[in-house]
Design a protein around this nucleic acid. Structure first.
Lengths: 228, 228
DNA sequence: TAGTAAAATTAGGCAACCCTAAATATGGCA
DNA sequence: TGCCATATTTAGGGTTGCCTAATTTTACTA
């Protein structure tokens, strides 16, 4: 009894949870400097906040080792993530934002929006499972669809892929992409990927194509058998 | 040159400006306790904040006398008010909120929304001049349409009025309102108004009607000659 | 294993805002 | 005109969160 969870996290707390969630996705605990870098804060600020959050039961802190989210912290992070991605989806679908300009707006709104509004937006959109960036949207219960597509530059060399979505509204770009023979459903094999945002080389039918990073990262592809 | 205005007011500051704007609408300066009452804060808190806001050039403070907005302060207040009313309009029009449930949501969003988003929502709605409560929406330049209708309980006794809008989506309520002979365009005279949210008595044609406050405040009316 | 560079934490401060208690100014009434 | 209730402001504190400087821990390397 007494103060059960007192939800209502502050903007700062929500940002920390999101950051830690994103960092720990990689599998290892989040270090103080990881978090500081992610949020653009000084390490001592993070140290202090981490202590407070651990005190609230939102994360587990092993001093000098790093932090991980508790179940409660993860719940908070997923709630914010759902808000963020629903907002992005809504702004793109209903208010004409381009998918690459919504982030900043969502970043501020996600802390101000009520659960009711999020669910109304979600309903209005037909409860989408993926946002305009192709990232899966956490469901209200915290579960999430498997991410099934990947930007072309992230596909391992040698892998075969199927183009699923072209993330651009730019007529010029779309025309170029079509001109090299790529359209949703196209099957290709990745032959090479230069590092440092270099071009991707693919075999498409009988031809080889070299695709610059800017374009390649608009091409979201499914890699057969990638799922668990 | 140098720091021109450094816009970006905090949530608190925006709330103070809105409150002071609303209070000073009545013509007289806003007293510390008026503001405290409006915002639900202690008088000393307001005293302190007033000093800070005056320092920022947002309002003029005559100690022990009260405060008024400067041009800069008024601009801030009208910006927030525009945001608030556009948001309310959008939520009602596009996301199925009832006009009496949007206030709280708008109260939080108005501090998080960008100017771009507000203008997109406004465009999507066809740049409305009035919000779902009948209040005029400040234009981006700060000007505002004249408010031409008033809720029935706010009409002075003896005044004649014309029903312009029934602010309800509730079928029951609409049926009741129609049953007493009221429909948009109906002309009536206010015979009495009990205080403390008491009923309004009107003459409508040959009959007298007593209308409870809940219903009466849904009835937005035009009072001939009220405008300037 | 000692030594040191990097990472993390502690110390000490600051700004925004809010609060209660204590002092002070105002303005109306006797 | 003087007194007093009321309104306002000043004093003194607390919290959240961020920062820089100093200290401590860790972990890698010689």
């Amino acid at each position: 009894m007494t103060a059960p969870t007192a939800d209502e996290l502050t903007t700062s707390v929500e940002d920390y949870l999101k950051a830690i969630y994103a960092i720990t996705r990689q599998g290892h605990p989040a270090s103080t400097s990881d978090i500081a870098g992610w949020l653009g804060l000084s390490a001592p600020s993070v140290s202090g906040m981490v202590k407070r959050l651990a005190g609230q039961g939102l994360l587990e802190h092993r001093p000098y080792k790093g932090v991980e989210l508790t179940a409660k912290g993860r719940r908070g992070a997923l709630t914010v993530l759902r808000r963020h991605r629903i907002i992005e989806s809504y702004l793109v679908e209903r208010l004409g934002y381009s998918w690459d300009s919504v982030h900043q707006e969502a970043e501020r709104l996600e802390h101000a929006v009520s659960e009711v509004l999020i669910e109304r937006m979600a309903d209005a959109l037909g409860n989408p499972e993926f946002d305009p960036h192709g990232d899966p949207i956490p469901r209200p219960d915290g579960s999430m669809a498997e991410a099934t597509s990947t930007p072309m530059p992230d596909i391992a060399v040698g892998q075969e892929g199927v183009l699923r979505q072209v993330r651009s509204n730019d007529a010029e770009q779309l025309r170029f992409i079509a001109s090299v023979g790529l359209k949703p459903g196209a099957v290709f094999t990745v032959l090479g990927q230069q590092p440092f945002h270099g071009p991707t080389t693919i075999r498409l039918g009988d031809t080889e194509q070299v695709i610059g990073h800017q374009i390649a990262s608009l091409l979201w592809c499914e890699v057969p058998g990638e799922q668990g």
